[in-house]
Amino acid sequence: MSAVAMLPDAETERPLLKVSRLSHYYGARLGCRDVSLDVYPGEVVAVVGESGSGKTTLLNCLAGRLTPTAGSVEFRMRDGRLRSLFGLTEAERRLLARTDWGFVHQNPAEGLRMTVSAGANVGERLMAIGDRHYGTIRATALDWLARVEIAADRIDDEPRSFSGGMRQRLQIARNLVTRPRLVFMDEPTGGLDVSVQARLLDLLRQLVADLGLAAVVVTHDLAVARLLSDRMLVMKDGTVIEHGLTDRVLDDPREPYTQLLVSSILQV
């Protein structure tokens, strides 16, 4: 045993998203405070907590949708350099948002264009980055609809005519079509029936694994966090009170609030 040196692991992996001491206040009211977090390529990080705990504020700051009051958010661009999100021009940030990032809203109507067809919803990002071949755009859209288990014959239907679960799956396809490296999800299974939730969770698990996606998932549902994430943060009153390996936080919670949260899960 002594022959093997106790070396620290070579830091071959570099974080994709680096969050340092991030705070956000809405005027005098606290949104989130002093959050630090690194997200590495291919890992899923869950942020859990009850409503009002600051998790959605945090997510919006990470995704550049909200400017933090203090602290920094850096993203590793394709050239390998970390760049501060808020040092980017708005044009750069929006380009990032439609290429390297995805954002899955709890309410699919916020992330979809409800009055254009499913195919165009999926194809929009492709067209936005310059794809100008109808045939390939449509073929790609069909492929993605199949991946999210939407029948090919619904490609020309508007999402208005879709069920909640289908809309959510369409939103996921729309986000993933440009092969983003990082996806933000805000309660991705919120408001769905349990059976529809299960299907969506399974789909997300599979896509995250197949595409090697990194994801930050905000949820109040600990079961969702357990199924999807490798690591989790527990937030309360705007601060991160506990973080670590998802199954350790859930099975061996340290903080009083986390213990309360875990013990509050309904058993079926």
Binding site: E90, A91, R94, R98, R113, V116, S117, G119, A120, G123, E124, R125, M127, A128, I129, R132, Y134, I137, R138, I155, D156
Partner: peptide
């Protein structure tokens, strides 16, 4: 302002699809 015109082609895409 940001020259984000993907939307315009969405309209044309819809035409062809329909």
């Amino acid at each position: 302002g940001l020259e984000e015109y993907g939307l315009m082609h969405v309209k044309l895409y819809e035409d062809i699809a329909r």
